[in-house]
Design a protein around this nucleic acid. Sequence first.
DNA 1: ATAATATGTGACATTTGCGACATTTGATAA
DNA 2: TTATCAAATGTCGCAAATGTCACATATTAT
Lengths: 187, 187
Amino acid sequence: MTENKSLTTGDIAKYCGVTLRTVIRWIERGSLKAYKLPGRGNNRITPEDFVAFLTAHGMPIPAEFRQQENNRILICDDEPAFAKAINRTLARAGYATEVANDGFQAGVLLVTFKPWLMTLDLSMPNMDGFEVLRHVRGNPDLEPIKILVISGLHQNDLDKAINLGADMALAKPIVNEELLAHIERLK
Amino acid sequence: MTENKSLTTGDIAKYCGVTLRTVIRWIERGSLKAYKLPGRGNNRITPEDFVAFLTAHGMPIPAEFRQQENNRILICDDEPAFAKAINRTLARAGYATEVANDGFQAGVLLVTFKPWLMTLDLSMPNMDGFEVLRHVRGNPDLEPIKILVISGLHQNDLDKAINLGADMALAKPIVNEELLAHIERLK
DNA sequence: ATAATATGTGACATTTGCGACATTTGATAA
DNA sequence: TTATCAAATGTCGCAAATGTCACATATTAT
């Protein structure tokens, strides 16, 4: 539960190498958005507002506020057995993984799980991989996610996937070591 | 997830980024309205009193307590013409609408658009409406959204949809006035 | 029923807001 | 360069708000 905790003026002061008094002045001036507790009006700042403030002023962002990067991977495959196999490989390699068995789950997890990479199986009867690819690349609101296509289809389908914005396209069968190497290279 | 359940001091503390002790002090001072359980007088706060408290002090309101404005509707239909027809009807009636043509869009929009109601066509070749229904009702993290199923399938499919958690199931063809009336009744 | 978890309370420690004033910073003109 | 000025930031002290800790007890889960 430590992840979504609001910050006090003291916290901000430490992060910015500045006095608490100064932080309060920033808040008073409106540069830093904050809300007040009912007591005497002690200030609280949400992490989001803090990073917005930092980026707006070109200030360095402390490591703990940087988005956790390059460790969350979403596996999109409608065949549970295959998805499980990939999941096991990636989980063993230390990645935090989630599996989507259809387009709906893929959409939800893409937004809530915020992966930096997704593996996408094109040859799925219950879910059009090309369509997912088109949506993700066509929606600027979605994270600039890396997409690694996996497919048992023909080479021209892999090429088509690349043209649609996939960062990498692998043909089945997949060798675990190769998969991990390709993911590592996409970082 | 957002039932009409009373909140404990611990809940409030987490939401406000504050200690349980402080919450009790707010209650003692009268800033936060609460009632006491018979046992030792443990405090309980109704969601209504909580949001009243938050707004009164300019504090941010957590997403799960934000008032459902009952005006955002998500239309799930893979047939653009039919989706457009429903969209026109709902937009004219004053609703804010978004259209999802496949499961992926439905998943993304459900999370980002946060509709209070979704219309769901079951008879879609590119998207399994039953699967969407199952996912939405099986995922406690998703909003407790109202689901209005629209289908050209047989009556037993409508019944199946109701069993899966749909709040209403209408058979095609749809009469605009009836659709609006049913939506109004679900509010 | 029993165990695990959450809550209330008091005493005490720490942090915070704020005013008044000192010091630094950066720009500008002499 | 130096002087000067305004804005921003730092320092100090106090009162109020909030946090911490231990423990008894209520509530919830098993």
